[in-house]
Design a protein around this nucleic acid. Structure first.
Lengths: 172, 172
DNA sequence: TTTAATGTGCCGACCAGACGGTACAGTAAT
DNA sequence: ATTACTGTACCGTCTGGTCGGCACATTAAA
């Protein structure tokens, strides 16, 4: 059922996430959808929860073997922007709708709040903050298709972010 | 008329930007709104154009007197994230709706594409890209109320961005 | 063993409200 | 007469949500 909802969101965007559309995609009836989710908001909440869990898992899977400083931050960078919009089209499509509802955005905020200390424990604050912001910036701009960088430039930037995180490299 | 639309967007969010709501806010009739804008999309387009112009003007107004390298980039940083969500609540509220419509997002993308070379001409590419991304990241996270930084931290970050842009400072 | 009762999972028709847009008669100023 | 609206009424569509009911399975009673 949630799979069907995600398919709809990715295919037609979150604005067109309709109970009917989900029902159709799931080869069920609207009544059937309403049976599982008491309201549309409940459905959206479930989607958000799932997206958060997936994002969390994506980073865990890239967790480094070596405990050298900055490796966790580097894993986060790779998990987030390693390949353009590869992993998480669902979050991408969801965000615009979720953003306009305080109830839905709250768990996402919580997720972000907890993630920062988890990934940046062994890196100086300002460096970690900069890398974190740039990574999120790139992710968000990709999502809105707003990024002014071409493919080559993007690759360079991602590499730079990884180096800054792990090797303590300096900016040119 | 556009002022009224902006008021509605800021007060109730862009999802509730209704022709009726705009008419009511402008103390006019719906017919009057439709007289000026043939469709709702036209109204949204006008709002987007206005927001872009305002953003452009905000940066121009902070244009530096000295032509030292990085000053333009620094002005951009200050104009964008100098104070939290001070200048441009309209763009903020608009974005979530604009993002889900390719026709509306296109001019924004164009704006971004042209802005990057304008602000980063006299700064090494990787440095400029990093500052640009971090700035946009901070702006977007502020907008979605997703930023995990408190006020003190935010101030530090903004200062860091300015220094990296202008003085060629290095990361701690 | 047959029959009745209860609960579950789902269907599909329908409803009420919101919204974009149309139509049109009227009006006040230029 | 033209322009720039107002005000009202209306339409079609979309959407979230409700509601009665159906098929089926399990359980309880006769």
């Amino acid at each position: 059922m949630l799979d069907a909802a995600e398919t709809v969101v990715v295919k037609h965007g979150a604005v067109r996430l309709t109970l009917d559309a989900v029902a159709k995609q799931a080869k069920a009836s609207k009544g059937g959808v309403m049976y599982h989710f008491p309201s549309k908001e409940a459905l959206l909440q479930a989607l958000v929860t799932r997206a958060i869990e997936r994002s969390h898992a994506a980073r865990e899977n890239l967790q480094p073997t070596s405990p050298a400083p900055g490796q966790t931050l580097r894993a986060y960078v790779r998990a987030s922007v390693g390949d353009p919009l590869g992993n998480d089209r669902v979050s991408a499509a969801l965000l615009s709708v979720v953003a306009s509802d305080p109830k839905l955005i709250a768990p996402v905020r919580e997720f972000f709040r907890k993630r920062l200390p988890a990934i940046a424990k062994d890196v100086p604050f300002e460096r970690a903050a900069l890398i974190h912001l740039a990574t999120e910036g790139l992710w968000l701009m990709d999502l809105f298709k707003l990024s002014p960088f071409n493919k080559t430039q993007r690759t360079r930037i991602v590499r730079l972010l990884g180096e800054l995180a792990a090797n303590g490299g300096e900016l040119p």
